[in-house]
Simulated scan of single mutants.
Amino acid sequence: MSGETENGRTETADVRKGNFEGKILDATNLKLLAAVLMLLDHIHQMFSAVGAPLWLTMAGRPVFPLFLFAASESFYHTRSKRKYLQRLLAASWGMTIFTFLLQRLIPNDNVVLMNNAFSTFFVTGLYMLFWNGFMDGLRRRDVKKIIKSVLGGLIPVACAFPIYLVAVLSFQENVSPFTIRFLATLALLVPNILTVEGGFSLVVLGTAFYVFRNHRVLQIAVLLILSGFSYFVDGGIQWMMCFAAIPIFLYNGKAGRGKKWFFYIFYPAHIALLYLISAWCC
């Protein structure tokens, strides 16, 4: 059973029954917290060459898990999953073109812009959609739908082929660096498992948030497992994304004020502003 909130979002029965006692953060709070931490992380990205402290990017490690968690909730509750994915794809295209042109028009030797969280959210959303189809196929015993959903999961894998092509061309001496960069930008317009920001493990995390959305302990367990894997395999500071478990645990299942377009605007705007300041002042 489900009901509509004032902003059109569907609430689960648990939310209506008040089974989130002591949980103080709604979805809007999570997104705003993630936005603040993301700002700190990108300050480090843009100004690390002039001594921006490491703690800024350490503080930013929980950002992706928080946004992916919020995205899993948004995808579940959205009225039109197709339109939701279309918005993310358009935003991904826009971000790729925007960062390419920005770096072309205003070079910055200290910063290489590869920021495109929208691509990660889009690919994650695809796997959420395929999961829905797979589970629906199981319930209906529809083998065709199950196979279609499984094959759909291979689409982001197949879309990585243009990246391999660019890699091959990059070893050709008669191909100019600008041509390689231009072709790479075109390849990046097709979100895939190789080019998603943060790596494919974040797509796995976001999909797990969706699969286990009714089991908060399992959601946090997956986050901690992937954080531990990052610590023991990759080293570095990415393991600190585990601290996203705290606000996720405090999530009360409510939408809050929404602010649907806030991230779509804030994300490219603050990156552009920080990049320009870095280019002109450093």
Rank of each mutant, 00 (worst) to 15 (best):
A49H: 11
Y264H: 10
F75W: 01
G8Q: 04
Y251F: 12
Y275A: 12
V36R: 00
R82S: 12
K23Q: 13
I271N: 06
T28Y: 01
F262N: 02
Q219R: 07
F67G: 11
L89C: 06
V204W: 08
Y267L: 06
F122S: 12
S278C: 04
P107V: 08
S230Q: 13
L113S: 09
A221M: 13
F171K: 13
F75A: 01
V203H: 00
S227V: 06
P268A: 08
R141A: 12
F69L: 15
E197N: 09
A59H: 02
V211A: 15
P191E: 13
S119F: 07
A49T: 08
E11S: 11
V112F: 05
M1S: 12
T179V: 12
L54M: 13
F75D: 00
M135V: 15
G133Y: 08
V143C: 07
A27T: 05
Q219E: 15
E4V: 11
M241F: 04
M114P: 00
T96L: 02
L88N: 05
Q238P: 01
D142W: 08
E173C: 00
A245K: 10
F47A: 15
W131P: 02
A244F: 07
L223C: 09
P162K: 00
L274P: 02
T179K: 06
I265N: 01
L66R: 05
K148P: 01
N214R: 09
F47C: 14
M46W: 00
M241A: 14
L224G: 01
F262Q: 01
P177R: 06
P65N: 10
V15M: 08
S80L: 02
I97D: 04
E197L: 07
G253H: 04
N29C: 09
H215W: 01
R257K: 07
F182H: 03
H270F: 15
I193P: 02
K31S: 04
F263P: 05
F229M: 14
T10Q: 07
D109H: 07
G256L: 05
I225Q: 06
R141M: 10
V168P: 00
H270C: 14
G152Y: 00
R257E: 12
E73W: 09
G235P: 08
R104A: 08
Y127T: 06
A91I: 03
I193S: 10
D136Q: 14
V15G: 09
L223Y: 05
T195R: 02
S201T: 12
F266L: 11
F243W: 07
M1N: 10
A49L: 08
D109W: 01
L218F: 05
F249D: 08
L202Q: 10
A160C: 09
L205P: 07
N252T: 06
G235H: 03
L274W: 00
Q86Y: 08
L89G: 03
V166W: 04
F243I: 14
A244C: 12
N214V: 03
E21D: 11
F47P: 14
S201A: 14
T99Y: 05
M241S: 14
H44W: 15
H42D: 15
A90M: 07
M58C: 07
L188D: 15
S230G: 13
K31I: 02
A117C: 10
S80W: 00
N115I: 11
L113C: 05
V111P: 04
N132V: 13
P247A: 06
